[in-house]
């Protein structure tokens, strides 16, 4: 059983009560194995963001079961979910969500702070993470001194600095131009391939979803389509110039 990384069983999520009641998820079943790269697609209002929040343990389902590595997430308290997030999950957002006036280094160190790592460990891990996203030498730059693509890479470094099992990316390329988008996708692919990190990505751009090996389509709070992508848009690591120039 425990070979599944994530299992959703009949997950329902409803918002509001009475007349304004809204079923955002109407009974989702989804199994995800370790090492998968899943693109979650669908029109707005289809429930993909709600599903992502539940998968990210930020939200709890109204009913149904969510097993993460065999543990029942729906039964966890707020603090227990926080501990689960800091141990296993990394987040990448559309809007980057970096701390302003704070160096890239410190931004990347942030999740380690809550794990109680000491300064030396934090610094080394953050430097490693920044290096793996191609931002060596940019440690002391603040977000306002970085381009959008670079900011998202800092955000990815922050997501992987804790060596998580899963990286959840919510429209990671939504704020970037096409070229930067492809570079970011290349990074996510390499995280998945080279580091074995499971990647769950919400996107509405088919171009970006094409990098994933599996595509889950949401329509109206249900999974309409769950298909393998036999020929993922495969970017060899060498094709991306990681030392981006502004």
């Amino acid at each position: 059983m425990s070979e599944f990384l994530i299992q959703l069983k009949g997950i329902k999520k409803k918002y509001g009560v009475g007349a304004s009641e809204l079923m955002a998820l109407k009974g989702i079943d989804l199994d995800i194995m370790p090492g998968e790269f899943v693109a979650i697609m669908g029109p707005s209002g289809s429930g993909k963001s709600t599903a992502m929040n539940i998968l990210g343990c930020l939200d709890t389902p109204s009913s149904g079961q969510y097993l993460f590595k065999g543990a029942h997430v729906e039964a966890l308290t707020r603090d227990q979910r926080a501990r689960l997030r800091r141990r296993y999950l990394g987040f990448v957002f559309q809007g980057f969500n970096l701390l302003a006036r704070t160096s890239a280094q410190e931004n990347v160190e942030l999740p380690l702070l809550y794990r109680g790592d000491d300064a030396k460990v934090r610094r080394a891990a953050a430097s490693r993470a920044l290096q793996s996203v191609g931002l060596s030498g940019w440690e002391n730059h603040t977000p306002s001194e970085l381009s959008g693509g670079q900011q998202q890479r800092v955000a990815i470094a922050r997501a992987i600095v804790t060596e998580p099992a899963v990286v959840l990316a919510d429209e990671p390329t939504g704020n970037l131009d096409t070229q930067r988008s492809h570079e970011i996708m290349g990074l996510l692919v390499s995280l998945n391939k080279d580091h074995g990190i499971t990647v769950l990505m919400v996107t509405h751009e088919p171009d970006m979803a094409a990098y994933a090996r599996r595509m889950v389509h949401f329509v109206d709070g249900n999974i309409a389509k769950d298909v393998e992508n036999p020929h993922p848009n495969n970017v060899a690591s060498g094709d991306i110039d990681l030392t981006e120039t502004i």
Binding site: G56, L58, D79, A82, R83, L84, R85, R86, R87, L89, F91, N97, L99, L110, P111, Y114, R115, R158
Partner: peptide, 8 residues
């Protein structure tokens, strides 16, 4: 963000 990355 702090809460998301696991701050209690």
């Amino acid at each position: 963000l702090r809460l998301a990355v696991g701050a209690l």
